[in-house]
Design a protein around this nucleic acid. Sequence first.
DNA 1: CTGTTAGCGCCTTCAC
DNA 2: GTGAAGGCGCTAACAG
Lengths: 337, 337
Amino acid sequence: MTRSRVSMKDVAVAAGVSLTTVSDALNDRGRLPEATRRRVREAADQLGYAPHRTARSLAKGRSGILLLSVSLPESTPGSAVDIEFFVQLLSAASGVALHRGWALVLAPATEGEPSVPVDFDGAIVVDPRPHDPLLRLADAEGKPVVTVGRDLEQPDRPHVDNDHAAAVHQALDLMARAGAERPALLASAPDSSYVRDCVDGYHAWCAARGSAPRVVTAKGGLTQGAGYEAARDFLTGPDRPDAVFTTLDSLALGVHLAARSLGLRMPDDLQVATLSDSEAARQARPAVTAIDLDPVGTGRDAVQLLITAIEESGAPAPVLVPTTLHERGTTGATAAG
Amino acid sequence: MTRSRVSMKDVAVAAGVSLTTVSDALNDRGRLPEATRRRVREAADQLGYAPHRTARSLAKGRSGILLLSVSLPESTPGSAVDIEFFVQLLSAASGVALHRGWALVLAPATEGEPSVPVDFDGAIVVDPRPHDPLLRLADAEGKPVVTVGRDLEQPDRPHVDNDHAAAVHQALDLMARAGAERPALLASAPDSSYVRDCVDGYHAWCAARGSAPRVVTAKGGLTQGAGYEAARDFLTGPDRPDAVFTTLDSLALGVHLAARSLGLRMPDDLQVATLSDSEAARQARPAVTAIDLDPVGTGRDAVQLLITAIEESGAPAPVLVPTTLHERGTTGATAAG
DNA sequence: CTGTTAGCGCCTTCAC
DNA sequence: GTGAAGGCGCTAACAG
């Protein structure tokens, strides 16, 4: 059981060459004769040699580690609905990173100084919040960062984003075609770029149509409960909107619940559409019309961008990931199958 | 922008002491006079010194990295339902790890040799499958492993688990009290220890009660669709069961859907209970009775166990995480609130 | 083309 | 109590 690691030196001895030759042969460097290269490789294989990553990192000054900020609220059971976007992004990002030889380390968002116990070469921050600690840490260490959604304090930072304003337009157009005359917007606190984009897009759409905007900000977290409370409010007050666009699927599900509990029929009495598609949106009855933000593509692109930034040490151009609107029952589409 | 790292040497010079002294002072080693220690610390703080983790890793022979196997099926949209358990586990594990000074790296389950691009000190494998590649890799490198659920090929491996058999008993008892006379079991392929435990528990319960067991294995993945198909089958055939226990929430939701589409009322015509609680189970109408496996506690314990295994280099005793049965509409409970 | 020589930044015996 | 020296395993200049 006491199996000491096989080092390059062992391989060098076995192959009868020097350390440099082993290194060059194994890393396809230098212009070694094919015979030597093969001999070294065979020796390495036979001995079961595996490079010591940490030593390599130290020598190269690069850890091979990418940080991914996480803000999964493990303590907020109610908000489990909107984790789907993040999970898909996470899974995709991790896969691509590994495929390209990088490891993804999770850095849950904490208040105060984030003490990351590893050296990292760059970081991905999803929906950076104002004064994001991880962002500051990366900046302080001079490490490249890619954000998903724009950093409002530094909008020119490399990022991957959707064209949310256009997506909102598309959804509002759909609801208008289905008969909506005064669609409202239910948004969460505008501290993320995507929420601002939605609000801006909404206002632009209203202005272009000459309809009076009605923006409601949900209080109390991004939960279904928050959506429910807000919806009970504006669905029972004066000037009840005949359509609602929400910036998050959990909010839409809250509206959905409120509408049903109030006896409002969807889509006839109330249309609902939302940002960020999810299983829950698909499973609701009627199913909720939603905009797929392509979290998989987003995660993939974020990693690619970050690796580029690290390897070319420049600021790569932002990437815009296309969205897809899925028409469902809450805006009048009839279920297929 | 060209800010060179502050090294221990810089601190040593600034504090007017030697490297050893700096190292000892910063790591609370040796018996230095408090004054010296403070002086060194102040110098370090002032210079903004941060240890180079990679160098430390190389010197200590420990990377500070824990691997967590992921089998999130990013390409299987339908199975997004049962990710909730894993996400909670992941989030909790990552938090605890960081808190204790370890980093968690995601290792998505791949076919073939998993090439992990970093050195790691140990691994957590959730629901290991037969011949799990990551398990083999860790074994080959002599790295400690903790599994969530038992490794069927090596059941004495350190692990964190629930007492699934007991949980199944509890659920079956509940359904029997509510009038069920021939509860069936809908299970996925028995290649995980938890599925086997459920099947065994089910058979034991049936034997004790003298009722005929009826086990159905869902085909085609752990999706809602698979549950639906299986349910359509046994709900329309002869000897329709009056209750079903499923080993996964997505299967239960499939049964739920099938029951509704067949006009069966829950709980009167069919009771449903399942393993693994989820938001979807809570949101269904009627809500699905489910067993909460405490993924957060499980993730936390798995990390703790693994760290223990690494630091004490022994095999820690298995941990059993308590479960909680949540009675809901599908077994007759009336909604509260 | 190959081998020798310094580090990468830190930890850790060992003398002083 | 403190400082000097060697080493962790690999990479990258530089010679030869």
